[in-house]
Design a protein around this nucleic acid. Structure first.
Lengths: 186, 186, 186, 186
DNA sequence: AATGAATGAGCTTTCATTCAT
DNA sequence: AATGAATGAAAGCTCATTCAT
């Protein structure tokens, strides 16, 4: 990982995304975060005028963009929704394993316990819906009518959210890998 | 709510369960919690020698017991698994509405970001498995073979965990009420 | 050490003397002390109505009594002051080694930083003078005139107090064993 | 005392040295210390990242430097060791009187009961040895052979340490002033 | 004579943030 | 655009003590 040449702002976002995902918004102190990102004390408020909450939003956005890329990489080459969903689940399981089998959903862990709950939850909803819309689009592309497509996408979302939590408690990505079973009429 | 006559320890547990559920382990300060529970500063360590983390475990246990009671109340009078599961989802949706449409799963919100992550996650797993086992027992009682029963129970668990998070982001319990749709071959 | 059958009060005194000697009055918490003495929480104020400070006085007295016994055991069988003083230094060096090469003078460590400084220092002076008087008596018994005897005793006291501190900093009782060199016109 | 224009860090060190010397490491609370030094709460950890123990080391160092200056001022203009030692004792007696006849040795009172005993005692030994070396150098300068010089210096150190404790218990610097008597073949 | 539950003041430390440079 | 010194509120926790039994 050559994250050394990255500009300070990007280093902050990536480190924040990783730490918030693992320990939650309030579980991470800024001084620790700045140390980990090798960023000087005062530079945070230069890049993120509103401080920690701005950084959390940016970190959640960055994590969400990554997920959207994984969705694309899973569904675009697929020949049907089930194949795409299966690939998606396996990719996330691999990600979970790589991160040490500890991390939670980067969006909910970062935004669900913030201080300005209203704004944070609204943003979480926005990101969640973006994800669901994207998967629903793929489902439509595979020929499913809009309402059914949306229901399939939401079902996958619920399973992944729930599965992520269970995988975290078990330190085991197995439940994520087995999610497709639950989709096919399980 | 006449929570005045309750002993101090129980008042602490209930207030802790509510506050942790809404704002997470690190999002709640002990002085605020003690004020809300009308308990003196030093009494926390009398009842919970290890302090905040002991209290969090107790709060998660108490919340889990409540959920197990809701499971019993949902499945025992039912005539089949689907009916029981539907009742369960509706009861949780009502609970979510009553709590202000803000709260997360009381177990994951309390235990997933604590300081002693290993012990906390292990306990979360224990409580989750207790819940899944209980629902699986009901499924078996309704005639489903053990392996199928367990899969049905886990499917319900994943949907509820995921649904809870989505409901929270949306401030809307609708997704919880519509969960049974996803179970019947969605 | 069969300190199990000892009455609670004596167990408290001995444990207090040992802990205060090592870590100072304020460095020892009562709950820790009570645990170490296997005494129930409330029993301290039964035996020592004024609490921690009463216990500290008792512990210092007990330690002082022990020192007076060592003085007697050193000087009574001796045939001259120098022999008695040499034996005394070696006995204290052995005691220092046995206690782990960490402890300070049980009187000053216990009483010099207490909360009621005036009373504590007065008591320390009383115990110190008792020790000096006792050694001076032995010096007189060996034929030295009263004023000379007192000066010899005080000289020994100063060397032992200073030597104890240096031995503590060095974790080495050697300086205590070499004290007699300084007395004979060094 | 115009300690107002002093930088915050130096104010903290001086106040700490004075308070620790009088009441011991654990006998002094940080909030009280910060109030006395007119320093804001959070600034301590800016100047001393490891908090109270860092401050204690700095205070002991500052006190030790002061003592080394007194040693120089006592021995440099002297014409022999005895004269220098006598001046030194009288200067310390005067210091003791000025400080209110309460204080202990600033090094042992500060470092002997700290929480990280090993590191603190090691540092106390380092400061003690610096003091003994310095006085031994003066003794050599006056013509005494190295081994004798060292023994003379250590003898003076022991008497001063012991005398300081006795003077403290008696609220009387007289014993310090009479120390030279003990050196000349007492 | 003896107990342990209960108390609130105080402990050391970390927090997110501001500001002068 | 970038920095690090400075800040006071709040954090979690321990303290010596009291009290009802």
């Amino acid at each position: 990982m050559n994250d050394r040449p990255l500009p300070t702002k990007d280093r902050l976002i990536r480190v924040a995304a990783e730490m918030f995902r693992t320990r939650g918004y309030h579980g991470v102190g800024l001084s620790e975060l700045l140390t980990a990102a090798r960023a000087p004390k005062g530079s945070l408020y230069h890049h993120f005028p509103n401080g920690k909450s701005d950084l959390a939003i940016a970190a959640a956005n960055w994590a969400s963009d990554g997920l959207l890329r994984i969705i694309a990489a899973s569904f675009e080459p697929a020949e049907g929704f089930t194949e795409g969903a299966t690939t998606f689940c396996h990719k996330l399981a691999k990600l979970f394993d790589l991160s040490g089998k500890w991390d939670g959903c980067p969006i909910s862990a970062t935004l669900f316990e913030g201080p300005e709950n209203e704004a944070f939850l609204t943003h979480a909803r926005y990101l969640f819906d973006g994800w669901i819309d994207e998967v629903a689009n793929h489902a439509e592309r595979f020929g499913h009518p809009p309402e059914v497509a949306r229901q399939m996408s939401e079902h996958l979302f619920l399973l992944l959210q729930g599965g992520w939590q269970l995988a975290r408690a078990r330190h085991d990505s197995d439940v994520l890998r087995r999610l497709p079973v639950h989709m096919s009429g399980g």
